[in-house]
């Protein structure tokens, strides 16, 4: 029973961060229909930023989100404007390769600057935990989960209640119609990519105290982000949040009951099942 509860709790806490990564990707895909293979690398940039702020300015990773978020918004917006914008109408494989190329540039630039050493942030609470019966609840992961919930709620509010948010949603629904309605589609794309980058970088900052940083850290997260996004339904914020939690739980249950080596198989199999049975994702519209 302890094993089950422990896996459930860690799965949910882990899923919170996954949700944030997925939300970032779903926003980008929703608005631009571009599969962003550099997503994990953008997260990596955010992680190094967190690292620099922690080591050189002594800013706690959870606090530094306030700085990382806007900086990464600019970074993502710039990438969209300079690169992604030019391939919006290109063939999907060209879009993919472009983002792969951008990812290679990011990770290898990071390698030249920081070397390929693992950077580990040790905060006072890095291995802190609260005991609850036979199970333990990680302190830093609980905090990051709460921050995730807050960020997701804020994003949801932004998309529903503000003019810009509604314009982004309109663009995601139908790009051409949005343009006809006088929405500045180009600007919305830049904002969406910037926001997507901020979100995934925030996720990077949140896992920094319990994980580690190295130039290639993004690759694994990119794949995971796709799985989460498709699971929840491409373009759906609530879906991505739900998808993140589901993936977190299936990973940790898979590791406990089938074996850690098989947990990613569980995740990918789940992904394929959803693609086949409900291609629009859990929260997507069924006709997509």
């Amino acid at each position: 029973m302890d094993v089950f509860l422990q896996s459930l709790i860690s799965g949910i806490l882990l899923g919170g961060v996954y949700a944030l990564i997925g939300t970032g990707l779903t926003l980008i895909f929703g608005v631009m229909r571009v599969i962003n293979f550099a997503h994990g690398d953008i997260q990596m940039v955010g992680m190094y930023l967190t690292y620099l702020l922690f080591v050189h300015a002594g800013i706690d990773p959870f606090v530094s989100v306030l700085i990382t978020f806007p900086l990464m918004f600019l970074f993502g917006g710039l990438i969209q404007k300079v690169f992604i914008n030019r391939v919006l109408d290109a063939l999907p494989q060209n879009q993919i390769l472009l983002t792969i190329g951008l990812g290679l540039i990011m990770s290898n630039t990071a390698m030249l600057i920081f070397t390929s050493d693992y950077k580990i942030l040790t905060t006072s609470y890095s291995s802190g935990s609260v005991k609850l019966g036979g199970i333990s609840i990680s302190q830093p992961m609980t905090i990051s989960f709460l921050i995730t919930v807050a960020v997701t709620a804020a994003l949801w509010w932004f998309l529903k209640k503000t003019d810009t948010g509604q314009a982004i949603r309109a663009t995601a629904q139908d790009r051409d119609a949005a343009q006809l309605m006088g929405i500045n589609v180009k600007r919305m794309s830049i904002i969406a990519f910037g926001l997507g980058s901020s979100l995934v970088a925030t996720a990077g900052a949140l896992i920094a105290p319990t994980y580690y940083i190295y130039p290639q850290v993004g690759a694994a997260f990119t794949l995971k982000a796709f799985v989460i996004t498709v699971l929840g339904g491409m373009g759906s914020i609530v879906g991505a949040a739900l998808g993140g939690i589901i993936i977190g739980i299936s990973e940790s249950m898979g590791a406990a009951y089938i074996g850690a080596g098989w947990k990613d198989v569980v995740v990918f199999a789940l992904f394929l099942l959803v693609l086949l049975l409900k291609p629009s994702g859990l929260m997507g519209k069924s006709n997509a």
Partner: peptide, 19 residues
């Protein structure tokens, strides 16, 4: 328990070992 390197969460595997 073999595990894929680079995972973030080893708690479930460790609690299996603990048991």
């Amino acid at each position: 328990e073999p595990y894929p390197k680079g995972a973030q969460d080893y708690r479930s595997t460790l609690s299996v070992i603990k048991s």
